[in-house]
């Protein structure tokens, strides 16, 4: 298949041109749920990177053995395994973070970014391409989470990554760390990204 993107293209596309959150609008559950603090968001992004990388590599290794009618089962099986590993790992070594993120770590299983990359890229292309695709998409996801979480944490608590950045007199916009803040921030940032993209096109 000559028209498949190369490894480098896969990597760069994931970060901005095909950003999973801002351009593909995939995996919005964690985007809305865990972005009230940058630390939580980055832990989630790390977990997604690990799961996506492992799942993409495994699927790419066995891509010639996949049968069309059984591929989704195999994707889900692989993803669920790695998500469980991440979940146990966080509970053992980052206990408080694991409690904060709660069910959103197990919910990575149904994060459609991962199954989408398995289907679109890993089940068709080489291991190296699949791995760089996973890293690119995860970086894009991390970037999106970081941008939303920064806005919400700074405006909502006056802190960034747990350190105070706004003066003490800042009246914390509590709504920003509550669910409505997620929708507001995401909507405005999505609008901004689309506006910039439209202007670029000319």
């Amino acid at each position: 298949m000559a028209d498949q993107p190369t490894a480098f293209e896969r990597f760069t596309q994931g970060i901005l041109p095909e950003n999973p959150v801002y351009r593909q609008l995939l995996g919005l559950c964690p985007v809305l749920a865990v972005t009230n603090s940058v630390q939580g968001a980055m832990t989630m992004a790390g977990a997604v990177l690990f799961v996506l990388l492992c799942a993409n590599v495994i699927i790419s290794l066995i891509r010639d053995l996949l049968k069309p009618h059984l591929r989704i089962v195999i994707f889900t099986l692989t993803i669920a395994t790695f998500v469980t590993i991440v979940d146990r790992f966080l509970a053992a070594y980052m206990y408080q973070m694991s409690k904060n993120l709660g069910p959103y770590i197990p919910l990575i299983i149904v994060n459609c970014i991962i199954i989408c990359r398995c289907e679109v890229c890993a089940s068709k292309q080489s291991v190296f391409t699949a791995a760089s695709d996973a890293v690119g998409q995860s970086l894009g996801f991390a970037l999106a989470l970081a941008s939303i979480a920064s806005v919400r944490e700074i405006l909502g608590t006056g802190m960034f990554f747990g350190f105070r950045v706004l003066p003490e007199m800042w009246p914390d916009w509590v709504i920003m760390v509550l669910p409505p803040g997620a929708f507001l921030t995401f909507g405005l940032l999505l609008g901004a990204v689309n506006w910039v993209a439209a202007r670029k096109k000319g």
């Binding site: 066995i62 053995l65 996949l66 059984l70 089962v73 099986l77 395994t81 469980t84 590993i85 790992f89």
Partner: peptide
Amino acid sequence: QAWLVLLLASFFGAALAGI
């Protein structure tokens, strides 16, 4: 038909048990 699913399931199951 499902040999790969079964193989992976037992392999992953063992890995998770180890974890």
